[in-house]
Design a protein around this nucleic acid. Sequence first.
DNA 1: GTCTATAGCCCGATAGAC
DNA 2: GTCTATCGGGCTATAGAC
Lengths: 187, 187
Amino acid sequence: MDLVVRAARRLFVERGYYGVTIPQIVKASGVSVGAIYLHFSNKENLASTIYQRTLDEFTAKFTKCLMGVESTRDKLRAFSELVFEITEEDPDMMEYMLTARPGSSPDCPMPLCSTAPFREVQRIVAAGIAAGEIKPGNYLIAAISYTGVIVRAVELRLQGVIQQPLPEVADDLIENAWAAIRAASQS
Amino acid sequence: MDLVVRAARRLFVERGYYGVTIPQIVKASGVSVGAIYLHFSNKENLASTIYQRTLDEFTAKFTKCLMGVESTRDKLRAFSELVFEITEEDPDMMEYMLTARPGSSPDCPMPLCSTAPFREVQRIVAAGIAAGEIKPGNYLIAAISYTGVIVRAVELRLQGVIQQPLPEVADDLIENAWAAIRAASQS
DNA sequence: GTCTATAGCCCGATAGAC
DNA sequence: GTCTATCGGGCTATAGAC
């Protein structure tokens, strides 16, 4: 059934929950209608499963990539590099993360970009301000300033506006994002 | 019929093109089915009209806000303040601009965030690099770094993550965005 | 367990009353 | 010009063959 989840997520990203029909999912996944309804009680339940699985997968990757990283700057760099890597290796997952928001499907509780991992980034930034690594001020504004650079790059890469793989321009982007929020004393 | 366009755009933003039915548009606009089909050949044509009108309106505002502005930094500031102002005064318009992309409705040619005004911002940044106001490098990366901060703030404001009206935090955001790309010699 | 065929519903679009 | 009533089509979900 993983096949159904992957195929459906791809289609949901392309045309939205309401723009995708069960027959289309059948064609794209090669799994019949009956088999789909055997594993998912209905279309809405399939959408919830996709949401939950995608969030869990991202959270796991995120937690892992922060292990053993110390400074605020390096933590933010690790987050950025993870996001860039996912964008190249599993663009559907990344695009789903950027487009899922309340209303995009029934029972989508919140945008994935406002869930635990992204709130954790806000916490990292707040700690960085307290440590003097990031310039003083509203931590939410600082977090947005940093992640804005990263997330926008992902969006434009997914749209094909950026031609190069993100890892190739990662250093410049991460440098710019850091320059937006670093304390005057930091390089 | 402007009433239909406004009501339909609101609904499209909330639930997507395929998630909105004609009966819903009838209810939300107070205009009957017959009257809608008298002015728009079909649902798809209504969506195209919304797309075109929104793009035209934004382009006009954008062109106007740049009149008489000289330096690269001030041009980018004018763009940012315009976007923040629209976000507060016509959030439906702004949210539509951020969510409209190919696939979101039939005949959506491109994301509004990749249309003329946003390409013009890229041109402004390229000129800023040539003039030495912005640090040297890939102009597209620089433009993304600046607009990323601004656009992300708009997204989180529309989602309710940012509680204050954007004009109240505009100065901090614009300062951060500029810090991300300014030349070492610039303040 | 897996599929095909179909029931029942609601949508987009239209025709005709006023 | 404006509305309501309706048609045909395609959707979700299920029932029953294999």
